[in-house]
Amino acid sequence: MNHIIWPEDYIPGFTENFVSNEIIVAGLSAAKIWPFLANPAQWPSYYGNSANVRFYDDQRPELAEGVRFYFETFGFPVEAACTEYVAPANGQPGRVAWHGWAGEGDTRLDVHHAWLVEDLQGGRVRVLTQETQKGKPALELAKAKPNPMINGHQDWLEGLVSIATARR
């Protein structure tokens, strides 16, 4: 199976927090999942921890490399820039990632959130999401029990599968 491509400053194990969530389901494809992930304006419709999505510079409501956008999640107002965008095609997995940031000084949080959506044998799809975080808020999130990032991202995965299943 494929893996996330990490920028040097965000390699897991060298940041204050790292979370990884994955789901594998039968009866869906990367092509069916992708439109719901690639369009942040749709996130709040299936992921309750996402709100107030907007794009800058009259960008379209779909991600592409270099696109700047804003959304709110986990109580943070997140400014973000898409750093990787490759739609799934010809047996190759879809990849999307963004650098997000919020706050200043001691409240500054920087993240690299990456997704991989790939078709597997037997009519299955794998959706992997991983995030590394830097800053004091990341240390606090890493210590929280239950872990809000792991639980929140699992909700995101399950919502993504649910909406793709309902609309196929």
Score class of each variant (00 low, 15 high):
Pro93Gly: 08
Gly27Gln: 09
Pro40Tyr: 10
Ser20Cys: 14
Asn39Cys: 14
Asn17Thr: 04
Val117Pro: 03
Gln59His: 10
Ala102Thr: 14
Gly135Thr: 05
Val53His: 01
Ile4Tyr: 05
Ala138Asp: 05
Asp57His: 13
Leu141Lys: 03
Gly94Ile: 04
Glu158Tyr: 04
Thr132Lys: 06
Phe69Ser: 11
Pro44Gly: 00
His113Glu: 07
Tyr70Leu: 08
Gly91Lys: 06
Trp156Ile: 06
Gly123Glu: 07
Met149Arg: 07
Ala144Trp: 06
Ala26Lys: 15
Leu109Gln: 01
Tyr46Cys: 01
Lys136Ala: 07
Ser45Asp: 13
Ala31Tyr: 03
Gly135Glu: 02
Val117Trp: 02
Pro61Tyr: 04
Ile163Gln: 02
Ile11Asp: 06
Ile33Met: 02
Ala89Trp: 05
Ile33Arg: 03
Glu158Ile: 04
Thr129Ala: 12
Ser20Met: 11
Ala142Asp: 01
Val19Asp: 00
Ser29Ala: 06
Gly122Glu: 00
Gln130Pro: 03
Arg60Lys: 12
Ala138Glu: 03
Cys82Pro: 11
Pro148His: 02
Ile4Val: 11
Leu157Cys: 08
Ala144Pro: 09
Thr165Lys: 13
Gly159Glu: 05
Glu84Gln: 15
Ile5Pro: 07
Leu37Ser: 03
Tyr85Ser: 10
Trp34Asn: 02
Gly123Lys: 08
Ser29Val: 06
Leu28Ser: 00
Met1Asp: 13
Gly123Ala: 05
Val96Asp: 09
Ala81Met: 15
Asn2Gly: 15
Ala114Leu: 10
Arg124Val: 06
Glu84Ala: 14
Asn49Arg: 15
Glu16Lys: 07
Gly13Tyr: 02
Val125Thr: 02
Asn147Thr: 08
Gly152Gln: 01
Glu140Gln: 12
Ala102Tyr: 08
Asn151Cys: 11
Ser20Pro: 10
Leu141Ile: 09
Gly66Leu: 12
Ile4Asp: 08
Ala80Lys: 08
Leu139Cys: 11
Arg126Val: 08
Glu8Ile: 05
Tyr70Phe: 14
Ala89His: 10
Pro146Gly: 07
Phe76Tyr: 13
Val161Ser: 09
Ala81Tyr: 13
Ala114Met: 07
Leu128Arg: 03
Asn52Val: 00
Leu109Met: 10
Gly27Trp: 02
Asn151Gly: 11
Trp156Leu: 02
Phe36Gln: 04
Arg124Trp: 07
Arg95Trp: 09
Trp43Val: 00
Phe36Trp: 14
His112Ile: 02
Asn39Glu: 14
Asn17Ala: 08
Trp98Arg: 00
Pro88His: 06
Gly75Gln: 00
Glu79Ile: 13
Trp101Glu: 15
Ile24Thr: 12
Phe74His: 05
Gln130Glu: 13
Tyr10Cys: 08
Ala87His: 11
Asp110Val: 03
Ala164Ser: 13
Leu160Ala: 03
Pro77His: 12
His112Glu: 10
Trp43Asp: 01
Ala102Asn: 14
Leu116Met: 14
Glu22Lys: 08
Gly100Ala: 00
Ser45His: 15
Leu139Val: 09
Val96His: 01
Ile4Ser: 06
Gly105His: 09
Arg95Gly: 09
Trp6Ser: 01
Leu37Val: 10
Tyr85Lys: 08
Val19Gly: 05
Glu72Thr: 12
Lys143Asp: 12
Lys134Ser: 13
Arg95Leu: 12
Asn21Ile: 04
Tyr85Ala: 11
Phe55Pro: 04
Ala89Ser: 14
Glu8Val: 09
